[in-house]
Design a protein around this nucleic acid. Structure first.
Lengths: 218, 218
DNA sequence: ATTAATTTTTAGGTAAGTCTAAAAATATTT
DNA sequence: AAATATTTTTAGACTTACCTAAAAATTAAT
């Protein structure tokens, strides 16, 4: 049974490992958690005691298998709750994260498995990130930035990168939401702008938009 | 912004006030929260500082209006989540309380109002207790023990008192669940047993059952 | 290869919430 | 009404998770 603080450290160390696979520094941890390096050192030493990560002084930390499983479980909960908030309670994309940060710490395996079923076993969250299964296994990320598509290619909208309120309203006006199929009708290689087909309507979008929208290839 | 511990104290003091309207003793609080009286004293003094309750040494405490509102809000959240767990995730009556104890502390007014709407504004929780509105107002409890009904009276099942697993399975077998209409066909004044009509089926039940089932009169 | 700059750890301290043990106030008996 | 029992509070200590300031190790620069 872990404390809230411990869970937050583990989750964030997990994310930092994608960027620093050789080992995460206490400084990086402190910055991510908005705390001081000395606090991070304290916590890392405590988690090492519990065999949730390996820690070599001055070198950095890596989660153990055990630690990784715990992290995956927290991320699973976070992402499932995000889907719930968006699909069932009709929150906007940019509003779900903060609440999911709280909900991810609710302790009940039964709850999360029932929620998973209730949501019909989604494979990605509203940002297009994969939801790990009960055993902590992630499916390879299939998401791609819309800007990577070329003329004629199709994709299903799975999430956003930037999630400012203005951007989300922009998408809303064009009926671009999760699950919608997008097709690139034209693409300008010079400035990256595109003409997009969405629900039989055509829209002209700039690179700024296509670089912040994730799609899944079909 | 209150801490988890503060919220739990306030909620439980609110409940204890129904039993001790003249003032709740630190001993009673300690017992309810499964902690020591000295800890309860500490916390009560802190909450008095914050004007959430009035406290007279050796005499007991009473929540202020402010404190009562906060309590009502926590109870509102608890009961709405219980409805969600039961109706949407199909938990059993006895499984929802523990999880709702965690969910009641999630901070987001928007979330709880959306949940309320999603559940179609329920007025009672799975134990037949009223759900306060956004402003903390409780509707008078209309629930009654089934055992209080007399021959010929009807009621809608709104909750259970005892909620052991065996009892819930007993009810399940007879299709007695929330929202079902029950009618007392016969009642024995000597031992309190009854013959009940449920969905056009008749069942003989003992007083032990009728004293643990809440109904709402129609 | 020293020196300087940076990163990381250690040492000691704080606040929240708990505890035990002892003191003080209140309630109950005789 | 004094003595006893019970309740309640205070005092001091512990743990968690954080902090600041200083020391130690590592890395970068000359």
């Amino acid at each position: 049974m872990l404390t809230l603080a411990e869970e937050n450290y583990i989750k964030n160390i997990f994310h930092l490992q994608q960027t620093f696979p050789e080992g995460v520094s206490t400084n990086a941890i402190a910055e991510k958690l908005e705390t001081k390096p000395s606090s991070a050192t304290d916590m890392v030493q405590k988690l090492a005691e519990k065999n949730l990560l390996t820690y070599v002084k001055y070198k950095g930390t890596t989660l153990t298998e055990n630690g990784k499983n715990i992290a995956a479980n927290i991320i699973r909960k976070h992402r499932l709750w995000e889907v719930f908030l968006l699909e069932k309670l009709h929150f906007q994309w940019d509003e779900v994260h903060e609440i999911a940060e709280q909900l991810e710490h609710i302790q009940s395996e039964d709850l999360i498995n029932r929620l998973d079923k209730f949501l019909d076993f989604p494979s990605v969250d509203p940002h297009g990130d994969p939801i790990p299964d009960k055993n902590g296994n992630f499916k390879k990320t299939e998401k791609k930035l819309l800007s990577k598509l070329t003329k004629g290619q199709k994709g299903i909208c799975v999430g956003v990168k930037e999630s400012g309120s203005d951007f989300l309203k922009y998408l809303d006006k064009r009926n671009i939401r999760i699950g919608v199929e997008l097709m690139v009708l034209e693409k300008d290689d010079f400035d990256g702008s595109m003409t997009l087909q969405v629900n039989n309507e055509n829209y002209f979008i700039t690179a700024k938009i296509s670089e912040n929208l994730y799609v899944q290839m079909t």
